[in-house]
Simulated scan of single mutants.
Amino acid sequence: MTVLSGALGRGALPATLVLAALAVIALAVGVSVGIGDLPIPLTTTLAALTNRLGWTAVEISRIHETVIWDYRLSRALVAAFCGAGLALSGAIMQALLRNPLAEPYVLGISAGASTGAVAVVILGLGSGAVSLSAGAFLGAFAAFLFVALLSGGTRGGADRTILAGVAASQLFNAATSYVVTTSGNAQQARDVMFWLLGSFGGVRWPEFALVSVVVGAGLVACLLHSRVLDAFAFGDEAAAAMGVHVERTRLVLFSLIAVMTATIVSMVGSIGFVGLVVPHVARFLVGPLHVRLLPACALIGAVFMVLADIASRVLIPQQVLPIGVVTALVGVPFFSVILYRLQRPA
């Protein structure tokens, strides 16, 4: 904690603002837990939580308690951490590549994860020993390694990395489409497509434990590099002149992004626009300094994803939309605004 505090120094987000944001996240999670075929009041959710912590002994329905603890609370918390991780990864990508349109999937991780998932679900690779999440994780890292080799590793510039990511995405997307169209039946294709658009329906406490550790550790590691990321804003040569080991820093941060994004995609599928839009919103609110930007991205991303998960369950009665559809409905207008601002003359 002392090392982290010293690394952040002055300029960090005020504690009161962080606490207020955490309160908003807690409220959003509480509302999310209450939404479903069995509505649960916010007070009941709070009572179930305090009962489990041993603070109270309020009488609540056994059915409500089961639904809260076995299904909905873990789902809402996983959504919060996934949103935080994707937004954080997007902010790092935009800093390293010096491109306002960069986002976590630039490295081809989403496309690789989809190929890995399809290989398990449709081709049956692993003979049942490899789960869909494990296959997606392996595919994501295969895509990351492909991009690293194609771009020249840490010596490759930003433009070369982006081009390598585009090539990897096209290659793995083509492989996914080929497998689905030639080997899968209609139901398998439908299941794969729903997964590719993102869903929190199957996540439980084991997934929460994993994603909370990965995203939490990633946030701390990125905060330790906050001043280095500020130096990258002036270009690689300027960063090197300031004493930054450019190649090593790129390797560390790209690896962090790969681990966080691969973990998230392997659990819930590909959820677009969060890593692209949220960093711009956070930058507008708190400025470009990464000591403030990174925590803001994590907090805003968490709120946004929980709200998107709520919207996916209430927009169409008796039907759950893929979470990627909801984030796209919000993200495309923001993306259009970003493009418009980039086209305006200075």
Rank of each mutant, 00 (worst) to 15 (best):
I63P: 06
L145M: 12
C82L: 06
A111T: 00
G90A: 02
L53G: 11
S133I: 01
T43H: 09
I63Y: 04
L53M: 14
A84W: 11
A143L: 07
N51E: 14
G139A: 13
L101P: 08
I60P: 13
A47K: 05
A91R: 08
V58A: 13
L27R: 07
G85C: 12
L101C: 06
A111L: 09
P39L: 11
S133W: 00
R62Q: 11
A80H: 05
G126D: 10
G36D: 08
T45Q: 06
V118Q: 03
V118K: 04
I92P: 11
R62D: 13
V33T: 02
L97H: 06
G54C: 12
G34A: 07
V121F: 00
W69E: 05
S74M: 01
F137E: 03
G139V: 03
S110R: 06
L138V: 11
W69K: 03
G34C: 08
L123V: 14
L96H: 09
E59A: 15
S114E: 03
A48M: 08
P39Q: 13
A142W: 00
R98V: 07
T56N: 12
L97G: 08
G126V: 08
G116W: 04
F137K: 02
G128H: 03
I68H: 06
M93W: 09
A91Y: 15
S131G: 07
D37T: 13
A148H: 09
N51C: 08
V29P: 11
G124V: 10
T56D: 15
L42E: 04
V120T: 00
G116S: 12
I35Y: 06
G128N: 02
A102R: 03
P41A: 01
A48C: 05
E65K: 10
G139Y: 09
V31W: 13
I68D: 06
L38W: 05
R72A: 02
S114C: 11
A87R: 08
L138I: 09
I40G: 01
F146L: 15
G112P: 00
V31K: 08
I122K: 05
L42W: 10
S131P: 11
A148Y: 13
Y105S: 14
G124A: 07
V130A: 01
G36L: 03
Q94D: 10
L38V: 09
L27C: 14
T50I: 14
D70W: 02
W55S: 08
V67H: 06
A91H: 14
A28T: 08
L88S: 15
V78P: 15
R75T: 00
A117K: 10
A136K: 02
P104K: 02
T45Y: 13
I40K: 09
A79Y: 10
G112Y: 14
A47G: 01
G54A: 14
L86E: 07
I92Y: 11
A76Y: 04
G124Y: 05
A140R: 01
F81Q: 07
A142M: 14
A142C: 13
Y105C: 04
T56E: 15
I60C: 11
L77H: 02
F141E: 05
A95C: 12
L96E: 10
V120Q: 04
G85R: 13
L107R: 01
A119M: 14
I40P: 02
V67A: 08
P104N: 04
S110V: 01
Q94C: 03
E103D: 15
V106H: 03
S114W: 08
Y71W: 06
